[in-house]
Design a protein around this nucleic acid. Structure first.
Lengths: 140, 140
DNA sequence: ACACCTGTGTTGCATTATGCAACACTATGA
DNA sequence: TCATAGTGTTGCATAATGCAACACAGGTGT
């Protein structure tokens, strides 16, 4: 059981080390944000903060940067219900870079998992999903 | 397969978020360092840097801090072959805190995995180990 | 013996991601 | 209309990190 902890720790450590050295097309943070915005309809900054357990201010700055380099649009959309907060959407360029970044990660993963069978991959994914779901129940 | 990536990303993100808010008995970084030193005979700073993919300077500072608060000893041991670098060892207090920290994580994990069978846990651990082992082959 | 190279650690400086607290703005409800 | 709650922004501080320059110790080659 301790093994689970150790291995996850190693994964996290290496992931951040890698993301520090390289910047694919996108920073890890940028990738994560764009991905979240893309997958969340009516996404506002505060939603990101909640989901990623970050401070509002942090998200505000990251979002500001993404907007500054033209990867997202703030307050765009039809915004029927302008109330409460500004809606975030990917710009064309944002989508483009996100896609490229996803593809890069995909390729990288594919190399790492090249010797795995589909079932083995599914099993790992299922285990990880369950692990994360468990956390959502107990706040930790 | 993309699921594996997403789930791992979530795990990493949450782990760092958690470690930011809490400081068990030890910081995540401190815990990781002490744990590595503990598990590595004749451990030198440069070994840590290599294993964790960190810069020498970063390790130097972290080690300096740990020494300053009395959790490790630098250059101690019998050091038959004093050459090349200073050997790091846990101090009594270091071991104590590391043990406590390990126990805290252990408890936390136990809560999260309380509904898992031993086999399921073993499977997950095995999958993660394999995943990490794969990375060691392809540098990434 | 002396000059030189290599491996290790340290330090100055910069950067990134982050949190907290104070503030600004905007609806919404009483 | 005014108070309140929800969002976002900004000033300030901190932790972890990298890079480059430097310091130092041990071997090597001549």
């Amino acid at each position: 059981m301790q093994a689970v902890y150790t291995q996850l720790q190693t994964i996290s450590r290496r992931a951040s080390a890698r993301s520090r050295r390289t910047a694919e097309p996108l920073t890890l943070v940028q990738h994560t944000l764009l991905n979240f915005i893309d997958g969340t309809p009516e996404c506002r900054a505060i939603d990101i903060a909640g989901a990623m357990r970050l401070n509002r201010s942090t998200v505000s700055r990251q979002v500001g940067d993404l907007q500054a380099i033209g990867l997202i649009e703030v307050g765009a959309v039809t915004a029927e219900q302008t109330s409460r907060g500004q809606l975030l959407t990917l710009s064309k360029r944002g989508r483009e870079l996100l896609d490229r970044s996803i593809r890069a990660n995909h390729d990288e993963l594919e190399r790492r998992l090249s010797e795995w069978s589909d079932d083995e991959i599914d099993d790992l994914a299922a285990g990880l999903e369950r692990f994360n779901a468990d956390e959502e129940r107990s706040p930790s």
